[in-house]
Amino acid sequence: MSDMKDKIQDYEINAYVDGLMDANEREHFERLLKTDKAAFEKVQDYQKQNQMLHQLFDSVLDEPLPEKMRPKKKTSFVATWQIAAALILALVGGVIGWQIRDQQGTQLNLMVNLVQPATLAHHVYRSEVKHPVEVGVDQQQHLVKWLSKRLGKEIDAPNLTAEGFSLLGGRLLPGNNGAAAQFMYENTKGERLTLYVKNKDEKEQTIAFRFHQDEHGTRSFYWIDGDLGYVLSGDVPREQLHKAVNSVYQQLVF
């Protein structure tokens, strides 16, 4: 109250503290401040308030931004979620669809290119009395060598004597992708088994035994192992054929 004319106003103190005065105003204010102890103390305290506010909160500026505070990539969260869900569904659907397609494709391929030619050859030659085989068992070494050469893979004629079947011989057949081989076996009752061997198709994977029975009642087990596809066919009970196929498989994989 000592200086009525130039009494410092609160808004002036604030403007000074907040750096909102121009040079002239500041100079004038500072001159007045020397004569106003109360105002001077206010300025000091307010400046300290501001300074301490920075001390308290400036570290926030250096904190890494949480990911949630970054702009979403062109889409809202909901849209992102929906797209993600749709993608997952499409992916799952695609994978399942592809698997089904693949399974169906593989199965179809196996039937057309492996099982049907094998059973057809079985039907054609099982009842052949005079020439059931091209090369007889008397030339077994030659037979195996010859068929191996034509298939481009080492194959052997399994021995099924333990199952009551003896090797008659074998022949070369046309397959869907090149040569195929057929070995023929016969038991004492005149029942015949044929083992059909061919190179597997490119896309085909190893598969375990599968069973097939055609419209004539001929039973077959077929499988793919390594590079070759096999079909063992016979007009014998399934159990009997199954024993034979196990024996074949064990001999082929040594």
Partner: peptide, 18 residues
Amino acid sequence: WEKQITAEVPRLRRYARA
């Protein structure tokens, strides 16, 4: 637009923290 806003985020956080 997003860059401009992102540049302000640290100060918005400080303000909100205070």
